[in-house]
Amino acid sequence: MSQPITAEKLARLERLLERQDIHDTLTRFSRGMDRFDRELFLSAFHPDAVIAAGPFVGGPVELYDWASAGHEQGQVATHHNLLNVTIDIDGDTAHTETYYLFVGRNRDDSNWIAGGRYIDRLERRAGEWRIALRTNAIEWSGLVPTMDIPFSDVPDIHLDGAPARGKEDPSYRRPLINTRKPQIP
């Protein structure tokens, strides 16, 4: 037996949708940076946003140019992993705290790992949530021992697409299909 949809339940559903829209915004930043997808990255920020990240303080276009150049020069792969997210919504403004784990495979084959929190103010403008202000609280960093990437010796490992910084990455394929033959080692 289904229960009637009450005003309270509708309000909770609306809040849940707002939270999901905010979470999607935070994810667009990470994926855009890791895939070097400028358009996706910039879609996470209002054009007049201010971002303070390490030595950088400025807008989203300048941040993308600065960060992608640094990642291109320093790493062959990066992962901006988002962890715990706290979202406080007040009308068309939201404040978030997002724990992150950054991992980069450096060009010298070392692995850099860092953790911290993105502390953001998001604003809903024209019905769309985007970051208006970001502070990056870096709390620790270090190098992890290097080892070979698992399964790199499998001849057809990248037949379905090799990891890439760009839209040639398999995550952009639609529809995603498997072209590798069945094999059980």
Results as ranks from 00 to 15, higher is better:
1 M>D: 03
1 M>I: 08
3 Q>M: 12
6 T>E: 09
6 T>Y: 03
8 E>L: 12
8 E>S: 05
8 E>I: 04
11 A>R: 15
13 L>P: 01
14 E>L: 12
15 R>W: 07
17 L>M: 13
18 E>S: 11
19 R>T: 09
20 Q>I: 12
21 D>L: 10
23 H>N: 08
23 H>M: 14
23 H>A: 15
26 L>C: 04
27 T>Y: 10
28 R>G: 00
28 R>M: 03
29 F>G: 00
31 R>C: 05
34 D>W: 03
34 D>L: 06
34 D>Q: 10
37 D>T: 05
38 R>M: 10
44 A>I: 02
46 H>Y: 08
47 P>V: 07
47 P>Q: 05
48 D>H: 09
49 A>D: 02
50 V>M: 13
51 I>P: 00
52 A>N: 10
54 G>R: 08
57 V>L: 12
58 G>R: 01
59 G>K: 10
59 G>D: 06
60 P>C: 06
60 P>D: 07
60 P>T: 06
60 P>Y: 02
63 L>V: 05
63 L>D: 07
67 A>N: 08
67 A>C: 05
68 S>N: 09
70 G>M: 04
71 H>I: 10
72 E>S: 10
73 Q>K: 12
75 Q>R: 03
75 Q>Y: 15
76 V>A: 13
77 A>P: 01
77 A>E: 07
78 T>Y: 01
78 T>P: 01
79 H>L: 14
80 H>T: 02
81 N>F: 15
81 N>A: 13
82 L>S: 08
82 L>M: 14
82 L>A: 13
83 L>W: 04
84 N>L: 14
86 T>R: 12
90 D>R: 04
91 G>D: 03
92 D>N: 13
93 T>L: 02
95 H>A: 04
96 T>G: 06
98 T>H: 02
99 Y>Q: 13
100 Y>R: 04
100 Y>D: 05
102 F>R: 01
105 R>W: 08
106 N>I: 03
107 R>C: 05
109 D>C: 09
109 D>A: 15
110 S>G: 06
114 A>E: 11
114 A>Q: 10
115 G>M: 06
117 R>E: 11
118 Y>Q: 06
118 Y>P: 00
121 R>Y: 00
122 L>P: 00
131 I>V: 14
132 A>Q: 06
133 L>Y: 10
134 R>K: 02
135 T>R: 08
135 T>F: 07
135 T>M: 10
137 A>S: 14
139 E>P: 00
143 L>R: 12
144 V>N: 10
148 D>Y: 00
148 D>L: 00
150 P>K: 00
152 S>K: 02
153 D>R: 02
156 D>M: 07
156 D>H: 04
159 L>H: 04
160 D>Q: 08
161 G>F: 04
161 G>R: 01
161 G>T: 02
161 G>V: 07
162 A>V: 01
163 P>N: 03
163 P>S: 03
164 A>H: 05
164 A>E: 08
166 G>L: 05
166 G>N: 11
166 G>C: 02
167 K>T: 15
169 D>K: 03
169 D>F: 01
169 D>L: 03
170 P>H: 02
172 Y>W: 14
174 R>W: 07
175 P>G: 04
175 P>S: 04
176 L>K: 10
176 L>M: 08
176 L>F: 11
177 I>H: 10
180 R>N: 06
183 Q>K: 11
184 I>E: 11
184 I>V: 12
185 P>I: 11
